[in-house]
Design a protein around this nucleic acid. Structure first.
Lengths: 147, 147
DNA sequence: GACAAGCCTATTGTGCACAATCAAATTGAG
DNA sequence: CTCAATTTGATTGTGCACAATAGGCTTGTC
């Protein structure tokens, strides 16, 4: 046992959060492999599918909380797959606008059945899922505010 | 908006879990940098501090749910820092036993104040923390069981 | 219209995470 | 004892994540 109770708490909170995130990534891996996507790539596509207008790399990064150092190579891979285009904004050449191709948009239909149910995959009921989401959103907001 | 409601759910559950885990890693980063540790290295040290006897790489991996491909280089870095030793088990030379050095054991005192309070860092109260832990543990178990 | 400040993306380097593969050692059946 | 199956850790290769740095673009101010 650790000599310091805070470390015990870390082992009981930080570790489960870390491990659960990786376990979910692993669980999705095989489901997404068919479409040739990794889990971060899938989350990126989700963010794009839920966007009203083609976002810039910066806007996408804000949504996913990822910086350009992570997003740029990831987006280049998705571009190489023909799922999106990366084009400089003509009106502001600092910006790179990410636009779904037809194939990128169509992919959400192919992946419609991938999460046969996240809730079943996670083994929680809807109330637990909502509670979890609420807790996680609060934590994200709190951690980012104090960053 | 996505055309498929499952994708909406993924965005509301998978993404927060993913983002919260990374936000926590980022939050610990500066605190651990003083001691020269990364967040995964810190979790590994926590696991070692809480072990009764020096574990093998495999046992440590089972505890942290990390495979040897991840643990081996991580442990080599901790060994290079003088925090632990990696020695073949004489009775079964397939096994590598990980043993804390005196410095490795002493480090937990240096880091006693690092999580000035995970709970405050996360911005949740104790009841929420326990609820979160319970949910995450269930999810980890469920995901691993169906792996 | 020139210039300083701030914004935005790319690049570089380190360190996980994991799948796939390999090699070595133990175990167990005959 | 012998050999095949299993166990166990290392190695290799791809793909995030992020800090630090650099450089280009725009904007606001004169």
């Amino acid at each position: 046992m650790p000599r310091h109770p805070q470390h015990e708490l870390d082992l009981q909170l930080c570790f489960p959060l870390y491990a659960a995130s990786r376990a979910l990534t692993r669980a999705y891996g095989p489901l997404l492999a068919e479409a040739g996507l990794t889990y971060p790539q899938y989350l990126t596509m989700l963010a794009l599918w839920s966007s009203d207008a083609p976002p810039t790399v910066g806007q996408l990064g804000a949504k996913l909380r990822l910086d350009s150092g992570t997003l740029t190579p990831l987006l280049k891979r998705l571009e190489a797959m023909g799922l999106l285009t990366r084009l400089r904004d003509a009106t502001d050449e600092r910006r790179v606008v990410v636009t779904l191709t037809e194939a990128g948009d169509a992919l959400q239909d192919d992946l419609a059945d991938v999460p046969a149910g996240v809730v079943e995959l996670l083994g929680v009921d809807l109330a637990q899922a909502q509670a979890l989401r609420g807790l996680l959103d609060d934590i994200i907001e709190h951690l980012d505010a104090n960053a």
